[in-house]
Write a protein that binds this DNA or RNA. Structure first.
Lengths: 315, 315
DNA sequence: CACTCGAATGTTAGCGCTAACATACTTTTA
DNA sequence: TAAAAGTATGTTAGCGCTAACATTCGAGTG
């Protein structure tokens, strides 16, 4: 029995006689043979590896997305090579190069902003790429996400419709290329007929930072009646701080978040937020990629998963 | 200039004349050459890939660990191949096989319980392995974690010392091989002189499940005066539910969690919990592995990161 | 019954790199 | 000053697999 027969028995069972296939499987079990996928990848020029790049894994935001990618990718028989760039476009470039060097069959990246060198290398590689977590005008290739601008604008409109008149936008550090910026711009657009205060915390976008922010905000401008946070983690932190200080929400100040993380529905009062599904973004991105790799025509190369303003008790 | 010179210029710059090295780098930049790490891995029999297997990526528990592994692994010039098995030992086996097939240089797995076939294959592979999130008597190879048993026991002792007399242990589904079991056993051991109620929710270990659990618990046994949850997520969910119902914590019932997740310090009242660092577990595991791969003698193959009962307001 | 055809299996070459050994040339040392 | 020891680069072979092209053989066809 030659090597190629074993190879075929494992990869294309239909092209091998039933009896041969069974003999191969028996021999493999007996010998504990584990096919070398590295050698296979070199010979076939397909690695069955998907590279994924997120800003950060920790935190509710992208952990779900990574889970979605992981689930979908494994279900399709691929492996997930993961990298986090910490909001550094240079680090993103390094990861893209490393993943291309690993001969990943396709890449999933976060956002639509990339260093020029990154765009160039991706284009030159000819690999299928999915951008996520945003919808841009000219995607590199495929894209799955939603409009951060419109989502934030919808929240501003919701707050105005509820009668709030002096709004605040609160974010963590505003990096050049994260999702805070379009959300701020969208919120500004929606709040253009109202007073708007902006506060950018420099020390993170976590619960502690949210707690600090709401105190700082109301000290600076006590008349603010509704605060929109760039994510639910910050918003929940702020909400808890209000509880601690006995400030009723929305009585003293209304609070809204973004993301509909698990914590949003669970806090008391429940958090008004914008629902988007990080898991679904990851899953769909992975499925689009593997479908393309399977030679299927991906008709919808731009998938807008949309968003939904979820009205709860806090605003 | 031969291929090997290019290879050396990139991998061992010191072994190539300065001038040659510069010429190589110039040519690489001009041609846009990206070394094929797959071919390199095949030839050198080292892939510079670390395989990591966690039960789940979503949720505060392991996302931090994955982040820690990712950071450390990239800093050492490795790539992270990630898999999640969803608490299924068969899926864990499949991932181990896939990662060995990918010729990962080493593996990081979660927990100390593995299918016999998994242990066999890992041993046969001869790869360095780090187990995490627990401390076992006979590790496969290296291990970094803490004693879930002792941590939970310490919490029981803390609660008794605070004067609580009727304790409850609340977890999600008790799987054969997750960290709930040693925590339950430890809590039992610490609570042996007190009344103990156990409640295992079948529908998850998230905030919603925690909220449901506390209601169910007090309906079943109104005299319980302190409830210990298997993780902070559940505990925070319960805490919020109490707030919602106007049950003072710890007035009506004391609540304690596990993990010292971000939410623990942020909720009101702040959550009494057991502090352990998921990030540090991931980071240390990765560093131990890469140190071993670099040929360094890893003297402490068993790293107990310990734990700390953090007394806050809820218990 | 020679012939085509298709199913099952085999042979050959090569994927792009690097380990190991070889060579050319320079510097040090006895 | 010739041998020894380094420094820089090159040559060869092969890592373990699979694409592409044989080959074999039995079944169906005219």
């Amino acid at each position: 029995m030659s090597a190629i027969t074993v190879s075929r028995a494992l990869r294309e069972p239909a092209r091998v006689a039933e009896e041969t296939r069974r003999a191969v499987l028996r021999a493999i079990a007996r010998l504990g043979y584990v096919p070398d996928l590295v050698a296979g990848a070199l010979a076939s020029r397909r690695s069955r590896i998907v590279g994924a790049i997120v800003p950060t894994i920790a935190g509710a935001m992208f952990a779900d997305t990574v889970q979605g990618m992981s689930d979908a990718v494994h279900a399709e028989g691929y492996q997930l090579l993961l990298g986090a760039h910490g909001y550094d476009l240079g680090a993103e470039l390094a990861l893209v190069q490393a993943f291309i060097g690993r001969r990943a069959d396709g890449l999933i990246v976060t956002g639509v902003q990339h260093a020029p060198a990154t765009r160039r290398i991706l284009a030159a590689s000819g690999l299928p790429v999915v951008e996520t977590w945003d919808i841009g005008r000219r995607p590199l290739d495929m894209i799955v996400g939603f409009s951060n601008f419109r989502a934030a604008r919808a929240m501003a409109e919701y707050l105005l419709a509820r009668g709030y008149r002096r709004l605040a936008f609160i974010s963590g550090p505003l990096r050049a290329h994260d999702r805070s910026r379009p959300r701020r711009d969208g919120f500004r657009a929606g709040a253009r007929h109202a007073a708007l205060v902006e506060l950018h915390m420099t020390d993170g976008s976590d619960m502690r930072s949210g707690a600090k922010a709401i105190v700082e905000l109301l000290a600076r401008d006590p008349k603010v009646d509704a605060a929109f946070f760039v994510n639910d983690t910050m918003a929940a932190g702020a909400l808890m701080e209000c509880t601690r200080r006995g400030w009723p929400t929305p009585g003293r100040v209304a609070i809204a978040g973004f993301g509909d993380f698990e914590v949003a529905a669970a806090v008391a009062p429940a958090l008004t937020t914008v629902r988007i599904s990080g898991y679904e973004i990851g899953r769909r991105a992975a499925l689009m990629l593997t479908a393309r790799l399977a030679g299927k025509e991906v008709s919808h190369a731009i998938v807008d998963l949309g968003f939904e303003v979820v009205a709860r008790d806090s605003a």
